[in-house]
C-alpha cells in the first residue's frame, strides 16, 4: 500500500477537488428536488397562510393572522381539532398496546405464532380505501352484516346486555351515520388497520432482548411473568416503543382515506369526524380557500415536526429507563 500512497499523496489536492466536484454532481439532482418538492412548498404554504389567495385569481391580499384567527375561533375548526386529537388519542395508545400484546403472545408461541403474524399484518398491506368500503357495507344499518348479527341476539338470553336490549327495542345504531358512534367507528378501523404494523415492529424489538436477562431476573427473584415483563422486556423495548408511538402518531394524524370514503361531504355527522387532512382537502382543494388550507397545513406540519423532534430527543437520550 505504501507504494501507492506516495503518488496518491502527490496528486491529493487535485484529487480532492475532483472528488468534491463529482460528489456535488451526484448529489445535485437530489438536492434540487429536495428544495423544489419539500422545502419550497413549506415556504409557499407559510406565505399563503397570510393571504386570501385562491387559484385562478391574478392577485391576492395580505390578511395578516386572519386565517389563523379563524382556526382558533370558529366552531368548525374547533370540531376539527377535537376530531383529530380524539382520533390520535384513541388510536395511538390502543394500537400500540394491541401491537405489543399481540407481539408478546405471538413470540411466546414460537413457529405456530407466525400464522397469526401473517393474518394480523394483512390489513397493513391491503388498500385502505377498498377495505373502508367493505367496512361501510358491513356497518350498513339495515343490510350490513354487523347489525344483522346483532339482531340474532334478540329474543335470546343475550338481551340482558343493555346495549343489545336497547338495540332490539329501538333499532341498532346507524354507526357511520350516528354522531355518537361515527368517530369511534373511525378509530376502530384505524386500530384494525394499524396494530399489525406495530406488532411487527415489536416482534423485531423482541428478538433483540437477550435470554440471559430473563435468567438474571429469575435469579434476582422475578418469579411471575408480569415481573419479568416489567423488569426485563418493557425496559428493553424502550427504543422500539418510542419509535412505534411516534410513527403511529404521525400515521394517525394523516388519517384521510376512511373519512373521505365514508363521508365525502363535510366530515361526518355533525362534523364529528372532520379531521385535519380532510379539512385541508376540503377547504384548500375543493373550495379553493387556499389561505385557510395553508394555515391548517402549517399547523399540521408543526404538530408532526414537534412529534418527530420529541422522538429524536428521546432516542438520543437512549431510552433505557
Amino acid at each position: 500500500m505504501a507504494a501507492i500512497d506516495a503518488p496518491a499523496a502527490a496528486r491529493a489536492p487535485r484529487e480532492v477537488n475532483r472528488q468534491a466536484r463529482t460528489a456535488w454532481c451526484l448529489a445535485s439532482p437530489a438536492l434540487a428536488l429536495m428544495f423544489l418538492i419539500l422545502l419550497v412548498p413549506v415556504v409557499v404554504a407559510g406565505v399563503l397562510s397570510f393571504t386570501n389567495y385562491s387559484l385562478g385569481n391574478s392577485g391576492f391580499d395580505w390578511v395578516g393572522f386572519e386565517n389563523y384567527d379563524r382556526l382558533f375561533s370558529r366552531s368548525t375548526y374547533e370540531k376539527m381539532f377535537v376530531a383529530t386529537f380524539t382520533y390520535v388519542a384513541v388510536v395511538v395508545p390502543i394500537s400500540v398496546a394491541l401491537g405489543l400484546g399481540a407481539a408478546l403472545l405471538v413470540n411466546s408461541l414460537g413457529r405456530i405464532g407466525d400464522v397469526y403474524k401473517t393474518i394480523y399484518f394483512l390489513p397493513v398491506m391491503a388498500t385502505l380505501l377498498a377495505m373502508a368500503i367493505v367496512w361501510e357495507f358491513m356497518l350498513h344499518p339495515t343490510i350490513g352484516v354487523i347489525n344483522q348479527t346483532l339482531e340474532l341476539s334478540c329474543g335470546t338470553f343475550l338481551e340482558v346486555v343493555p346495549f343489545l336490549a336497547n338495540g332490539c327495542a329501538d333499532g341498532f345504531p346507524l354507526w357511520l351515520g350516528d354522531r355518537d358512534y361515527a368517530i369511534w367507528v373511525l378509530c376502530f378501523i384505524g386500530i384494525w388497520q394499524g396494530f399489525g404494523f406495530n406488532m411487527v415492529l415489536y416482534l423485531a424489538g423482541l428478538t433483540a432482548v437477550h435470554r440471559e436477562l430473563y435468567h438474571a431476573a429469575e435469579v434476582d427473584g422475578a418469579k411471575s411473568a408480569w415481573e419479568r415483563f416489567r423488569l426485563v422486556t418493557w425496559p428493553a423495548l424502550g427504543p422500539t416503543t418510542v419509535f412505534v408511538v411516534t410513527i403511529s402518531c404521525i400515521r394517525a394524524f394523516q388519517v384521510f382515506d376512511t373519512v373521505e370514503a365514508f363521508w365525502p361531504q363535510g366530515g361526518g355527522p355533525n362534523k364529528s369526524t372532520y379531521v385535519m387532512m380532510f379539512a385541508i382537502f376540503e377547504k384548500g382543494v375543493q373550495q379553493n380557500l387556499i389561505g385557510i388550507g395553508s394555515a391548517i397545513t402549517m399547523l399540521f406540519l408543526v404538530f408532526v415536526m414537534f412529534l418527530t423532534l420529541i422522538q429524536r430527543w428521546l432516542v438520543e437520550r437512549k431510552v433505557h429507563y
Binding site: 418538492i37 419539500l38 419550497v40 412548498p41 413549506v42 409557499v44 404554504a45 399563503l48 404521525i250 394523516q254 384521510f256 387532512m277 385541508i280 382537502f281 384548500g284 382543494v285 387556499i290 388550507g293 395553508s294 397545513t297 399540521f300 406540519l301 408532526v304
Partner: peptide, 8 residues
C-alpha cells in the same frame, strides 16, 4: 411528510 404539504 409529503401528504402534509399536498396543498402547496
Amino acid at each position: 411528510p409529503v401528504h402534509a404539504i399536498a396543498l402547496p
